[in-house]
C-alpha cells in the first residue's frame, strides 16, 4: 500500500452506509485503525473500485458480514498477559468466590480464547458451578467460532506457557483433546459460558455483574465512545465488583474514575461506591 486507496471521505461514506443499512455504528471508532483495516480488505479482495466496494457492502449481506469481521480486530490469546490472570486467580476471583453466585461479562470476547481461560481459572478455584460467563461481541461470525471451542493446535505451546506463567499448576493439555490440527476444549468449560451478540456502541446494559472484562477493545474507540462505554460498564457493575481493561487502557480520564480504586500493578479497578 502506498497512497491509501480509500480516503477519509470515503471511509465516512461507508460508515454512514453501515449505520443506515444495517444499524452498525462505527462512527465512534478510532479512524486510523479503521481506515487501515478497510484499506487492507479493499486490497485483499482486489475490489476494482470504490463504487463497487460500497455497493457490495450495502447490497450483499454476505459481503457485509465479511466486512464487519475484517474491519474489527479479532486477534486474541488464551491467558494473554499472564500477570493479569495471576491477579484474577489470586485476588479477584477468590473474593468473588464468597458470593453465592458470580456473574461475569466478557465484552468484546472475539473468538472466545479469554472466555475459556476464565472458565479454566474458575474450575481450578472450584467456582465454575456457581458462575456464569456472558461472553459478547458485536460480530456473530466470531461468536460462532467461539462457541465451537476449537483453536489451532499450533497455538497450544504458547497458551500453555502463558497458563503456567499465570500460576496454572495443571497439565494444560488436560483441558483439550487434539483433533487433527485443532485443540477442542472440554465441554465442561463451555457449560457456563453464554455467547451472545452485544454491541457496546448501541446496546444497553443487560444484567448486573460482579466482574466485567473488556480488554483491548476501548483502544479502538474515540474518547467520546470510551466515556460512553465506561458508563455502560459502571451501570452494569455491582458495588464492590471489578472492572478489568487491557494493559494500555485506563479509566483515569472518565467520570466514573472517582468511584473506583485500582488494584496494584494491574488494569483492574474495584467499584467502591
Amino acid at each position: 500500500m502506498e497512497l491509501p486507496l480509500i480516503n477519509d471521505e470515503q471511509v465516512e461514506l461507508l460508515l454512514s452506509d453501515l449505520l443506515e443499512n444495517y444499524g452498525y455504528d462505527f462512527t465512534g471508532y478510532s479512524k486510523a485503525s479503521l481506515k487501515r483495516r478497510i484499506n487492507r480488505l479493499y486490497s485483499l479482495d482486489k475490489i476494482p473500485g470504490f463504487a463497487e466496494f460500497r455497493y457490495k457492502i450495502s447490497r450483499d449481506s454476505l459481503y457485509f458480514k465479511r466486512f464487519v469481521e475484517q474491519i474489527t480486530v479479532n486477534v486474541t490469546e488464551m491467558f494473554r498477559d499472564p500477570g493479569f490472570f495471576t491477579a484474577l486467580r489470586e485476588t479477584v476471583l477468590p473474593r468473588l468466590g464468597t458470593y453465592p453466585f458470580i456473574r461475569i461479562w466478557l465484552a468484546g470476547c472475539s473468538t472466545g480464547e479469554e472466555a475459556y481461560s476464565i472458565s479454566i481459572l474458575l474450575k481450578e478455584l472450584n467456582l465454575l458451578d456457581k458462575s456464569l460467563i456472558y461472553a459478547t461481541d458485536l460480530n456473530p461470525a466470531v461468536l460462532e467460532k467461539a462457541a465451537q471451542g476449537m483453536f489451532s493446535l499450533n497455538y497450544m505451546k504458547q497458551y500453555s506457557e502463558n497458563y503456567i506463567l499465570s500460576g496454572g499448576k495443571n497439565d494444560f493439555s488436560s483441558y483439550y483433546t487434539a483433533k487433527y490440527s485443532l485443540a477442542k476444549f472440554n465441554e465442561e468449560l463451555k457449560h457456563k459460558i453464554i455467547f451472545s451478540t452485544h454491541n457496546l456502541v448501541s446496546d444497553h446494559s443487560f444484567n448486573e455483574f460482579q466482574l466485567i472484562l473488556c480488554r483491548n477493545v476501548l483502544i479502538y474507540f474515540d474518547r467520546d465512545l470510551q466515556h460512553k462505554v465506561l458508563e455502560l460498564f459502571d451501570e452494569s457493575l455491582d458495588e464492590l465488583g471489578y472492572l478489568a481493561l487491557g494493559t494500555k487502557e485506563t479509566i483515569d480520564f472518565s467520570k466514573i474514575a472517582r468511584k473506583y480504586k485500582r488494584l496494584q500493578n494491574e488494569k483492574i479497578w474495584r467499584k467502591i461506591s
Partner: peptide
C-alpha cells in the same frame, strides 16, 4: 511505541494503539 501493539497516528495528531495481526 509500547511492545506488542501497533502504534498509529491519527489525523488530529494523537496516538492510537492497535492489537491487530
Amino acid at each position: 511505541a509500547p511492545s506488542d501493539y501497533h502504534l498509529l497516528i491519527e489525523m488530529n495528531k494523537t496516538f492510537s494503539l492497535d492489537y491487530s495481526e
